[in-house]
Design a protein around this nucleic acid. Structure first.
Lengths: 257, 257
DNA sequence: GCTCGGGTTTCACTGAGTGAAAGGCTGACT
DNA sequence: AGTCAGCCTTTCACTCAGTGAAACCCGAGC
């Protein structure tokens, strides 16, 4: 029946959804089939079902895009918009006080996912895409998430090559390891020119009902007007405030990683 | 093979995703199976695959929730976060000027889906859930979307019973039809105590690259401090600004409805 | 006209998927 | 302790949902 024995229908459907990226948000059926490694007829049929349900939408140009229904269902994810709803008032407070970028992220395996970003209109530009992923070892939120991640996740990240974003990005595992220990000691992370040469971020943990770190919040500011030591208490207070609001609404977190 | 001949694997998988609602964000496997009308073993296997991919997450309490991966993929939907990204600066401007609630919504079939809401801290409480659906005939954004919807959608909505949210909600199809015509004439909608007795909203259309109305933006204010005629130009200007930014980034919209 | 890339449909074949049945575990209640 | 209900996982004989090579169509570009 299948040219790829053992490959389930479900996995084929999910492979079609996985074909879309920020760089390729619109795909023809043939592109979808190629990216999902499916013969055209198979892709055509599965795509037709996804379209009927709303997970994919086909535009006037014949290209398929992720459909609104998928985002609607996805918005029920406690770690996505659920967390965002709870964190947003505090994030807005932090923004009103500083008028700098405020970011919220969670850890998924060995990467972070940005959940929300309040962009300061006159603040330093940041590369964040809500719903997008980024490495753990460079950004403020990533460093916090990594510092409090299970040991096996930390080892996994430290064992892999660490990508360099600027000349100052820490890519030596030993140095990074010491930095993570410092974060755990002080309770906040500073990312200084680790991602772009003009930005510095200060991040603090957000804890779930059982006390474990489930997310991180940060301020991202232009380096020339930053004093991390002065910003840290603000960010940490925001992290604590959000932590308190995760008391009972957040539900039981999954074992990630 | 199947006790329900003709029911495809894909539709079963999608039925599992459809089992979650804002009222029931966390479900046991048995509940999932019941809601998706699947025997337990079938549900168990499909759920396991969804968990492996990240579409569902299982918490320490044994319950399943929508997983972050689904929201990540969903964030690529042009009509979801894609639209939000483009609209957000203008929404924030409108918020800074008014400090009232700002809402963004799109039409999906005969309902609206809220894409974003900037909540005024001292503004009237609104019932909006980002990612959630609502009827078209009562809210400001819903009225705009309905006024410019294809005729068949308008007829569909007008032919069905119109839900009453307050004593003042317009539920007479004839009255509503005349209201829609007025919206098209003036270019904005006013929803006065149609949803809650203390709120009034003013909404305007957002147009896509081909000139058709693809979304709506609104201010929601406490009624006792509202002058819709004064607010309308602000909201309309915001709608036009967002429309301009949809020029080439938005892609070709699907045929909805 | 020819080529290429975008697709849809057909149909003989098969293995992925099925669900009743059996079994296990836990917690609540008597 | 025993019983019951609810939560699940696993087994296995059976079958039909799914398959993809092949054939076909369309439109654009040369």
């Amino acid at each position: 029946m299948s040219a790829q024995p053992g490959r389930s229908v479900t996995s084929k459907v999910l492979a079609l959804l996985d074909a879309f990226t920020p760089a390729r948000p619109a795909l023809t059926l043939s592109e979808l089939a190629r990216r999902a490694e499916l013969p055209l007829p198979t892709a055509s049929r599965r795509v037709a079902e996804l379209v009927a349900w709303g997970a994919l939408e086909r535009g006037g140009d014949g290209r398929y895009r992720i459909g609104l229904r998928l985002w609607e269902v996805g918005s029920l994810a406690p770690r996505g918009l659920g967390l965002r709803e709870l964190a947003l008032p505090t994030m807005e407070d932090l923004y009103e006080v500083t008028h700098e970028n405020v970011q919220l992220a969670v850890r998924q395996d060995a990467e972070l996912v940005f959940i929300e970003r309040i962009a300061g209109r006159h603040a330093v530009p940041v590369l964040t895409r809500v719903g997008g992923r980024f490495a753990l070892h460079a950004t403020g939120v990533g460093l916090v998430l990594l510092a409090y991640a299970p040991a096996e996740t930390q080892e996994q990240v430290l064992a892999a090559p660490l990508e360099r974003y600027t000349a100052l990005t820490i890519t030596d595992p030993g140095r990074l390891r010491r930095g993570l220990a410092e974060i755990r000691r002080t309770g906040y992370a500073v990312s200084d020119r680790q991602v772009t040469m003009d930005a510095l971020s200060v991040a603090a943990p957000i804890r779930g009902p059982e006390g474990s770190v489930v997310a991180a919040i940060s301020l991202v500011v232009a380096r020339h007007r930053a004093d991390p030591v002065a910003l840290a208490p603000l960010v940490q207070a925001a992290g604590r405030t959000i932590s308190r609001s995760l008391g009972t609404s957040y539900g039981s977190p999954p074992s990630t990683g």
